[in-house]
Design a protein around this nucleic acid. Sequence first.
RNA 1: GGGCGGUUAGCUCAGUUGGUUAGAGCGUCGGUCUCACAUACCGAAGGUCAGGUGUUCAAAUCACCUACCGCCCA
Length: 877
Amino acid sequence: MEEFPSKYDPQSIEDHWYEFWLKAKLFTPNPQSKRPPYTVMIPLPNVTGRLTLGHTLNNSIQDILIRYNKLTGHETLWMMGMDHAGIATQVVVEDKLLKKGTKKEDLGREKFVQEIWKWKEEYATTIRKQLKKMGFALDWSREQFTLSEDYSKKVIKVFVDLYKKGLVYRGEYIINWCPRCLSALSDEQVETEEEPGKLFYIKYPIIGTEKFITVATTRPETMLGDTAICVNPKDHRYKKLIGGTVLLPIMKRSIPIIGDDYVDPEFGTGALKVTPSHDPFDFTLAKKHNLEFINIMNPDATLNENTKEYNRLDRYAARTKIIAALKKEGSLEKIEDYRLPLAKCERCHTAIEPRISKQWFVRMKVLAKPAIEVVKNETVKIYPKRWINLYNHWMENVRDWCISRQLWWGHRIPVYYCSKCYDPKNAETNKSRKNAEMKIPKGMIVSTSKPKKCPVCGSDAIYQDKDVLDTWFSSWLWPFATLGWPKQTRDFKSFYPTQTLVTGWEIIYLWVARMIMAGLEFTGQVPFSSVVFHPLIRDKKGKKMSKSLGNSPDPMDLIDKYGADALRYGLQLITPKEQDVLYSEKAIDVGRKFCNKLWNAARLVWMNHKDDNETPPSQPTIYDTWIISEFNVLIKKTNNHFSNFELNAIARDIYDFVWHTFCDWFLEIIKICPSKDTAKYLLKQIIIMLHPYIPFITEEIYHKFNFAKKSILLEDWPKIKAVKIDIANVRALKRLIEEIRNIRGLFNLDPKEKLSVIINTSEDFSNFLGKNHMVLQGLAGLKDIDYDRTPDQSVASIIMPALECYIILAGIDIEQERKRLSTEITALSKKIDEIKYRLNNPNYIRKAAPPVKQREQERLEDFLKKKEGIVKAIEKL
RNA sequence: GGGCGGUUAGCUCAGUUGGUUAGAGCGUCGGUCUCACAUACCGAAGGUCAGGUGUUCAAAUCACCUACCGCCCA
């Protein structure tokens, strides 16, 4: 038996099968195949570090879909690739260098970028290893990287094309600025955390009066750049002051009081200080009211020369000093505690500063319009449906996308300037290029390659824009840039558009929406026909798992402990359709136990039936027919669930079938009533069906049996086999066995004690039981079965609508039995009354559907018969 | 402030067009080393389906309201 040990040991087989799959090139599709294509693009992992449990879940889902589609006859491509992840990667490498005391500036741009490449190679290797350990059917031959030479060309082409179409422009805008990364951040790269803070009330003297107007602010240092006070014109307290001026404390500048509806009279004092250069809302307000813009900060969040004595002070140091100065002046009314939402850099958690700067933008409205349409008309289907709302909400309110980043790691912006004739000041006036016809500033060249000479003055002193592109500006091209686009390659023609995108809902804006826009704009087609959003994994306390919190277990440790299949299956079992996953390691243990159960079921079949045929039996027993019929139900449910991407339901259904139908009943039955071919045939069907979820163990079992194909992955998905024979008797037998076991438990009988029973039932069913008495005796633990007799000994009674079964028990406690039966009568009577009441209701008679009425009538009759039987049984006691 | 989701057994969750006696896993309790599996087997206990109102012959399921929890956007 050493060839098939009783304990399943994943470690001894998993690596071997992955190598086998790779050698057999099972994951590499042929673009010329006649089979229908099925393509999934991996949500590219960042090269920032090791993979987490979140990746494991995300990729498991894709692997299940890929393998399922391969088994159902598709030519499958699961595209592998990684993301250079601009700011994220640069920050980790910077931190790593800083720990050694090196700043990136010490190295210079080129050397620093080389350092990042080294890091990238290291982590790309780790990530590949991890993905292989999980068993993922990724096509490694087509692996991509968003910063590869080839991919970069496409990114640059897209920038230039969009510029030519007037969809990319350079503009001055208030943006989120990270003073540590010294870079602009997109709105989506900013996270808001609520923190305890203070609300400062500052008094601004109204010129020409003795009065003050008090404003409340959480960032008092910005007052140095105030250029107005704004109040709500409907606010009676301040209405009269509009048009007046106040004196800005410390700076002693006079600034106007303006009125605007946007001010919330309820917040603070109802008066707002306006700092156009340092607050997004104030920025808009200032544009509207033509206010002055005064920048008071340097890029690193120290104050600048516009702040007199605070020049070069850090923003927080300045805050302290300013508060002291205001106090001294008598301009500080009070300080209150206040919980404020603080915007921080997603990557380094530094508080961001809004800042006016020149950046590159993509005009989004025009791209969004068709993208909204394809979701509405279901060219792109979204699962679960509720995410459509979120998608629409964002798309309808989409703002222009700031795509420039002040980083070194990324695609350099393909814009060149002539040192001789380009004047940055002139360019600034051309704030936003509204359309393609508008003039390109003199001396600026937008081109896929560096121009040798300035086309205006002929100078060869040309320099490139220092900034790089937002990382998402490369990943939004992912579904087609990886397939050869813009060339019409064989891959592109065969595998684009792709079928399913699987991702977490948190990047619906950052990525999914943008890919749809890019697909439509650059290929004229949607990039995928369905999007599946899966939940996030949270820890037991409901906290999102993240590298920084350190609350994600390392999937590799879990694989060592439980095996990859157990991890995959356990995760699917606990991943709900519409809620986040509350992770607990116990789930993985459940997966492990399930694998072991399957293993042992296979072992039993192997011991007794390995030489059977693997095709369905020609002479099925009634039990064969029964189990095939139950399996048909499972196939049908599974196929339905796959079409809606309800992978959790599938995992549950198969678990239940394998354990509680196949093992608990069928395998137990065939020990007593042997069957030919069915066990082996069905086991094969089961492992095929489970293969997408637990690829390693199913491949191993498949080979233990020497089934026909080279790999289980080349098999055909199970099909429903029509069943003609009525299996109602098997179900009734099963129920009878359960009832007898129940009595055994209630009376605390020794499992080894064989019981004698008397059964009174229909002629048909007693004939059936007569033929099948071995199964009944074996599974219920009986010795003698008598038919059609009134018991004259003390018995425990099982009363079913069409059957009475008396278990002869010598020393039975009569009181206990009477009590048990009475309780049952009470429950039955209640049920009977309810049904009778309903059946007599004229509205019910008129309105209820006929099948419902019929079923209710049958139930009533069953209950009445059962009750009658129990009453008799009590009398006999 | 606006929006979305949730509330079902001690815990984590299923419950597909309203219609059998609301299910599972884990945990608990009782009994079994029965020749595939003690990572197992057999059984049991445990639920006013958050609360309220309504629609309906019939509501965990549909509508509205309330409470609490979570998330997103401002």
